[in-house]
Amino acid sequence: MDFLNPATWADALKMKAERPDAVPIAGGTDVMVELNFHRRRPPALLDLTRIGELSTWDLDGDTLRLGAGVSYARIMAELGEQLPGLAMAARTVGSPQIRNRGTVGGNLGSASPAGDAHPPLLAAGARVELASVRGTRLVPVDEFFTGPKRSVLAPDELIAAVLVRPAAGPEQFSKIGTRNAMVIAVSSFALALHPDRRAVGTGIGSAAPTPRRAAEAELFAAGQLPWDTLGALDPDVVRRFGELVAAAAAPIDDVRGTAAYRRHALAVMARRTLTWAWRDLCG
């Protein structure tokens, strides 16, 4: 197995173009598990950890550019204000060791339906910046995933960053696991209120072949929430929102849980997170 160790982003893109079979490695918390379990034996690894710019974030106007290599630990520590949903999700990832190593770029690279960064990115309407020697393109995150562990990432491309608008309103993330820490989601849900646009964002995790939005639920809530009065939530609206979120899922039975439970839990999480977020918005 070759180990490619570029020092610059330009070199990394060049190497990836020359060796499209090289597997990028960032925190390695997915890659190393696959290697250790003998699930994968790539001809080459492309180490991205020496490229400093990948692990930085900055604010450019109203867009926050989050480098693919920023760890969950740093997101929790540095971005709780700007990206509260993602920071909440980061807090639920693995253990402190995993949060120190694991990155959002890696989460997207794996494109697991259970990846915890995905629902808040969906709810926030983030875009993924993909780069290659051919150039750079921006893909809305809800178009990024194409199937279980599959994405639009081309063999010669790397994930450079995630572009997202800092939260203009409350965000929530909620995740079900059968233990109280260090657990892959049985199902998860992210919610973002965008009072500026009077819109609602959602993200469903671990309950469909890909992370996905609950589009109908978003429209329903956007139309029904009392944006003008900021008055109390109508319990029927909350209930219906939960139903629509559950209906948007396409879960399966597996070792982590049943489809029926996943749907049920999504409805509960949707109701609760909407209630909390609305309460936060109304102060």
Binding site: T92, K175, G177, R179, A181, R272
Partner: peptide, 15 residues
């Protein structure tokens, strides 16, 4: 110390 669900933010006491 914390509610069911741990740090995964599933309840603030509901249920």
């Amino acid at each position: 110390d914390f509610l069911p669900g741990g740090t995964a933010n599933t309840t603030r006491g509901e249920g």
